[in-house]
Write a protein that binds this DNA or RNA. Structure first.
Lengths: 228, 228, 228, 228
DNA sequence: GATGAATGAGCTTTCATTCAT
DNA sequence: CATGAATGAAAGCTCATTCAT
């Protein structure tokens, strides 16, 4: 468990353009950070896994902290893009939510390393908590905005702080299930998204009554009660 | 940011019984860990904040890791007890949830340091993730069981894994709002609990329709739609 | 292997006279030192094995160094006495040697702990090397004197330094076999003594007769007796 | 007594190749270990004496224990080679012994530090006793084998264990005189070798002729030669 | 006489970071 | 461009030793 094996088996002495080297190092860093955690990870190992000498790492990505933040940003950007690519703002709320959640869990399922770096590590370590909070804030704002527009479309209005808190709750539920997914390698990301959709969309009271939400349903969803 | 100031300004040279010193050290440790994170925190600082020499810390609480786990357990126990003291299993589901959430947010609001140690720090640091996972599991199981009994009381049934995931989502939402609460010192714990109750109990769809959940409502809750 | 079990199973709170306590502590110290070595041994463990609190150890036997020296002296005294009790200076040289060796190996065989403290530990550790050297010196002098008297009784004489070196060689051979004995728990001390006697005496006997070996002599060497 | 002065008075900031630095560190370590003993020696001092920073010591030679073993092995190898270079197995037994002893004492006389590390320190400290025992074992086996072949050449035979013990005795005598030599800086190694040869050879010669000493024999002992 | 409580001091070990080549 | 060599600084942990009771 001590050291991860080098990413590129044959260490290349070719003088590669800076951009490629940077990506190699970032890949290595994400791997190492996600396996060992920020503090336990050593620059030595990252350099070795990247197949590069330590001074190169410093030359290209800077301090250990800066390197970690670079990882954080790259993974966060990828995640946001994966979601943004898929959500169609012209659709109804439930469709947006559903497609967003699917994209989210699909991403986490495919990049469990990245997720680990992103959320599990960063959440507690002070220098990064702020960075991460800002990222989460962006998501929360997007969701709160979605809710707001949908509510206004119904001719009603919800207090800003209530919107924010609701969005936070949804994000928290999502992160929690992402963790759950990361710990259950065999679980299906799509099904997980469906389950969260059920809870989030219908609420406990409905579930209690036996209602079930299913993709493809028009909005408002057809619940068993409505169907009756 | 370097060092937290000593808890008791005048360092006491009195020979105190072991039990008291242990609590002093635990208090200091929770404070320091929650401010600096596990790795960044130094035993030196913990000892200093506790107003005790380092060897005492080791003699009474053991290794840094053991000390952290001791913090973890103490805070977790307090949290669980605070909730258990308040939840009445003979009540309906929504009442149990509501009282549980209130107790939860009240605790977090009153012990922000403890919460930070418990969830923010431990989640990512490998030796403790397992310990923490086990604790969360206990809560999840309790909630899942609550749901299960309520559903069966209605004469229906929900697949085990769906129960588990729902409970996970709820716990995640709760943790997320707890973080939010910890970051908003002026926010009211009770209101936060109410907001989560709304989202969790009613679900997004209902909120969209303008439904509002309020404490004291009988089960099933009276929604604006029912009222209409 | 961490801690040796207490010598007296039931820790006695009786106020015992100082002398007895001192012996208890010395016994414990010899045990602990011989198992862990001087530096690795801890005063805590010695106190615990002795069934006494640490301040008692300090009160009675002083510093760790002083305690070790006390062990050293007690064991050395016992060894010397065991030998002196048995050697009859009125007998011939070989009888003295033989009885002395028998007593020596018998002692080592019976007090392997003591031997370990005495020689293996003390030899290298600077504060004790001197102490030990002095003890060895006393034995060497006794042996050298025995040889000297025997030679003079034959009407001849051997240079002082040669006597000393011979005695040193004998002592070294004895210590070496004592180590060997300590490492072979099933070996018979008496037989070991016999074997050393063979080597030592048959050599010594020739010296006694005035034989001299010189480099370049063919094999078998021409002794003065053969020459006569 | 605290600190040995640096080997090279002017600390060199030149970047030296690893091999050279390793030797510098080993030299320093042997010096420091032999003066202070394993436990009392500090890595700080070793690094300082080597004219190198502590992390270098760890990078090149590893743990304190590993460093000590490296010293042990280097010194032992040197000693064995010094002897092996000189002993001619085609010669007679006494010539082999004599040349071996001369080489041995010459080495010890020239490398008193090395000797101290090798035998005085390692003998008692548990992690190394085994290592050292194995080394001594190799020497003992060589000597026992020499004896065995010589005895068989005479058409006789000696029991294995007797050979082993005799060899042990010889080695012990040699070590003892080596210590004596290390403590008498003005003594001549060659003369010391001669003195041991006298004791050892005149004894060995008798054994070679089949003489046997038995307890109770009158003085001077009746040898088979006398009996003839 | 006897002890639990308490500490100063020190040691090994590790790591992020930077020169000199 | 690329690296092996080198280090300052700090952290975890232990232990002999001593008060105050």
């Amino acid at each position: 468990m001590r050291s991860l094996t080098r990413v590129s088996t044959t260490r290349t002495f070719k003088r590669l353009p800076r951009e490629i080297r940077e990506q190699q190092v970032l890949d290595a860093a994400v791997r190492v950070f996600s396996h060992h955690g920020f503090h336990t990870a050593s620059m030595d190992e990252i350099a070795e896994v990247a197949g590069v000498s330590k001074p190169m790492v410093y030359a290209y990505l800077g301090t250990k902290e800066e390197l970690f933040i670079a990882c954080l940003r790259r993974e966060a950007t990828r995640l946001m893009e994966a979601i943004a690519d898929v959500v169609d703002p012209t659709l109804g709320l439930s469709d947006q939510l559903w497609s967003g959640l699917r994209a989210f869990f699909a991403f986490v399922g495919a990049h469990r390393d990245g997720w680990a770096v992103l959320y599990r590590q960063a959440r507690g370590q002070e220098p990064f908590a702020a960075e991460l909070a800002a990222m989460r804030r962006r998501i929360v704002d997007v969701i709160a905005d979605m809710l707001d527009r949908a509510v206004r479309a119904e001719g009603r209005q919800i207090h800003g702080i209530d919107l924010e808190v609701s969005a936070y709750a949804l994000v928290g539920a999502g992160e929690s299930l992402a963790d759950w997914l990361a710990d259950h390698p065999d679980a299906d990301p799509d099904k997980t998204a469906g389950r969260l959709m059920n809870v989030a969309w219908l609420g406990a009271a409905q579930l209690l009554r036996g209602d079930v939400w299913a993709p493809g349903g028009s909005e408002p969803p057809v619940t068993s009660r409505d169907a009756a």
